[in-house]
């Protein structure tokens, strides 16, 4: 089973992949409409927004949590350390 390198989501079916392209290592939620992968800042904003919208977290607490989670993922290990 593939796991998204950008957010860690398990990818088990074609619709989990951007444009249903199963050769990709990132998921549909980490892709832009053209299928390319979102940048670090786009993904950080997306994850922060998700935490606020669905769990009601404080904006700064949500941003820090999202950044800590991203730092553990293959796509952002180096970026987050910069």
């Amino acid at each position: 089973m593939k796991t998204c390198i950008s957010c860690g989501m398990p990818m088990t079916k074609p619709s989990d992949f951007p444009l249903e392209d199963e050769s990709k290592d990132y998921c549909v939620y980490c892709a832009r409409p053209d299928g390319s992968m979102q940048s670090y800042s786009e993904k950080l904003a997306g994850m922060t927004g998700f935490l606020i919208r669905t769990q009601g977290l404080d904006e700064e607490a949500a941003r820090q949590l999202a950044a800590r989670n991203m730092a553990k993922l293959p796509a952002w290990k180096t970026t987050a350390a910069d």
């Binding site: 998700f50 935490l51 606020i52 919208r53 669905t54 769990q55 009601g56």
Partner: peptide, 30 residues
Amino acid sequence: SAVSFHFGRVLERTRGEKQVAALPVSALFN
């Protein structure tokens, strides 16, 4: 987050059907 992701996904889909009280996703989830 794994739960709130699916909770939010389904809630957004059913919003139009007026089955659930008009409160933010976070309030209903919490």
